[in-house]
Design a protein around this nucleic acid. Sequence first.
DNA 1: TTTTACGTACAGTTTAAACTGTACAAACTT
DNA 2: AAGTTTGTACAGTTTAAACTGTACGTAAAA
Lengths: 162, 162
Amino acid sequence: MITHEKQVLMKKIMNEFAKTVELFGLTPLEARLFAYLYLTEDIMTLDEMSEALGKSKTSMSTSIRGLAELNLVSRVWRKGVRKDLYRANTQLFKLFITSYMNKWVDATNHRKEGLYEIKKWLQTQDKDAIHSDDTAPDLDEKLDQIITFHKQVATFFNNLQK
Amino acid sequence: MITHEKQVLMKKIMNEFAKTVELFGLTPLEARLFAYLYLTEDIMTLDEMSEALGKSKTSMSTSIRGLAELNLVSRVWRKGVRKDLYRANTQLFKLFITSYMNKWVDATNHRKEGLYEIKKWLQTQDKDAIHSDDTAPDLDEKLDQIITFHKQVATFFNNLQK
DNA sequence: TTTTACGTACAGTTTAAACTGTACAAACTT
DNA sequence: AAGTTTGTACAGTTTAAACTGTACGTAAAA
């Protein structure tokens, strides 16, 4: 039997925890859902989550998939049960840091590619048109600086995972 | 004299760079503004920025203040000039990492305080009401786990700055 | 003192993110 | 095979973030 006091407490912790989880780039609902699953330690169906958080089932579906994508929850199999079951994974620190670092590395590497594209395109262009004026900064050089920055960021976050 | 080709190139780099800058928690406009200032190396007034980016002066005012807050741009003084002048700071990596880490440390410490409040409140409550049921998880314990998590995150980001 | 120029507060608008509801395909049940 | 149940696609709505425009306080200029 769950007392009223316990529910109040539960809600307090969930809301506070969820705010931190949001910092890792999760939507408000994803964050609250994870916090809820983590706190209750329950293995739940979409319908139960929907009921528990008072949000639509569609939202539960997309949220839980987002969480699973980040490896923050796991799907659980039980014979005879047709519905999808999920539970929160427990090693908070490792999970969040890892998924977050991956996001950063992916994003910055992606941008770096874009910048290399520009650099390549630049080499096909008429140099005179771009370098002819000596007051404005040399964009070629600036581009290199920015690419270097991206490398640093990617490397930085990459190293953190160890 | 700035050629058309150079402007095109400029815009390409700016847009790509700005996307990365956004990752550090800046608004789209803040990001583009910084990228622009960084690329041109200009010292500009609000009106000039507004003109250059084609956005309102109000936006420039709030954006530049945001950037200054994060120490990504600096105000420049020139005798006889009444308007505010700003330029981008140049050591990209250091600047961005530092401001970002600070944000994280602040945010997580703040949440940690909130969680301690809950813990304190918990101790004033009737223990029986909360612990009476032995099937559901012990929230007291869960709370401690989450607080530990927050400490780890704060410590983690704090250590990165060195 | 009056006038002009500048930055920003604040209310309002636009744009993007988050969330919902219906409706449907796939899989299970009978 | 027909009837249920389940998860999700997709279009639509709501909510929040981003940005604009007017209007005003402050400070320099006349």
